[in-house]
Amino acid sequence: MAWADSFLRTLKENDVRLVTYVPDNVLTPLIDGAAADNYFMSIGTTREDEAIGTLAGAYMGGLRGVAMMQTSGFALIANALASLVVPYQIPAIIAVSERGTLGEFNIGQVTVARTMRPTLDAIAVEHHTLSDEATMPFIVDKSIKQAFTTQSPVVFIFSPLLTGGNPAAAAKLR
């Protein structure tokens, strides 16, 4: 997948080596791509807030990282963001696949997806929706550099316009 290769390449260019993740269908090219590349230290965690905590510790120890998760997993990290990442000024890089829109079949995903941007806006966390391969390298590169320079987290939301959405969705939509 070109978008996944592009994202991983930009991570490398910015010395982001640790990948913590909770599995997700849409982000599988990213997760598998990182796992197959010895440059990355890839750790599957049991929950998304655990992925964020691990990232925070690694950053303070001098290792840059990214946490990967799906939309519903994002709903589990509000406390880790609001009481760890934001107040301690941790430049966490977070990649979230966008479920719940543009061809979702699961109403639970639809509702939880609506909490994502309002939550990020409420705690003033920078977020960018990635929907286009052409502009993606610029957005990702500049935002990662901004995050580390300004001690601030950034969230990349991977739109179905970029990823094609959940591969399992087509058979379930009518």
Binding site: E50, A51, G57, A58, M60, G61
Partner: peptide, 10 residues
């Protein structure tokens, strides 16, 4: 998890 992250980094 935070301590685990520090341990991975150092």
């Amino acid at each position: 998890p935070i301590a685990f992250g520090v341990a991975l980094a150092q």
